[in-house]
Simulated assay, not measured.
Amino acid sequence: MNFVCYPKCTTCQKAKKWLDEKGIKYELRDIKENNPSYDELKKWYKASGQPLKKFFNTSGLLYKSMELKNKLPNMSEEEQLKILATDGMLVKRPLLIKDNTVLIGFKEKDYEELFK
């Protein structure tokens, strides 16, 4: 199981604490140091069942400075995935990847459901 996060992110810290308190083992990956590749993002996106827009960190400075809010609706899925693969700070986090399940962000209820 992979836990892809940005260690300075408070939401990531909460998710990590939750996993640690439950004694759940995971492989930690710093998204800033080891950005997900196009192929990884495409695989995770398909497995998540979520719209691709959910993978964007819409509150991030980079997202805002690139004006992606206005650009994404006119971009193909492939173009969006390529942009996501350029910088980990564009990707919403944390990402929890377990088997064929991908959780985006941290909602305690979703984590509890996955590990019950």
Rank of each mutant, 00 (worst) to 15 (best):
L41F: 03
F115E: 04
K46A: 14
G23H: 05
C5A: 10
K98R: 12
S59L: 05
G105C: 09
K22D: 12
M75G: 07
Y63A: 01
L95Q: 06
A15Y: 06
V102E: 02
F106V: 02
M75L: 15
F3M: 05
N34Y: 10
I104H: 00
P73S: 11
T86D: 01
L72W: 05
E67P: 01
C5G: 01
I97P: 01
I104A: 02
I31D: 03
L62I: 08
P36L: 04
D110I: 12
Q80P: 10
K17N: 14
E113D: 15
K109M: 13
Y111Q: 09
K92W: 07
N100T: 06
T10S: 14
I31L: 14
G105E: 06
P94Q: 03
E33P: 10
Y26L: 06
W18I: 06
L72G: 05
N34R: 09
K109D: 15
I83K: 10
L41W: 02
V102T: 09
K98D: 12
L95W: 04
M66N: 02
K69C: 00
I31R: 08
E77H: 10
P7E: 12
Y6N: 11
S48N: 07
K25Y: 13
L72D: 04
T86A: 07
S65N: 07
M75C: 12
N35T: 15
Y45F: 12
T58Q: 14
L90H: 04
M66W: 14
T58K: 14
M1Y: 01
M75F: 14
I83E: 05
E27M: 10
F56T: 05
K46T: 12
E21L: 13
I83L: 10
D20S: 09
E40S: 01
K82D: 14
P36H: 04
T10P: 05
L95M: 12
L41K: 03
L81N: 06
P94H: 01
S37E: 06
L90W: 01
P94K: 02
T58G: 04
K17W: 13
C5Q: 07
E112F: 13
L95K: 06
S65R: 11
T11F: 08
E79N: 08
P7Q: 07
I83Q: 03
A15S: 07
W18D: 10
K92A: 10
R93Y: 02
R29F: 10
Y6S: 00
E33F: 11
K42W: 00
Y45D: 11
D110S: 15
K46Y: 04
L61S: 14
A47N: 12
D110V: 11
N57T: 09
E113N: 13
T10K: 12
K54P: 00
F56P: 03
S37M: 01
F56S: 02
P73Q: 13
K22Y: 13
F56I: 03
S59H: 03
K32V: 15
G105Y: 04
L96H: 04
E112G: 09
V91Y: 08
W44F: 05
I83H: 06
K54V: 10
L41A: 04
C12K: 02
F56D: 02
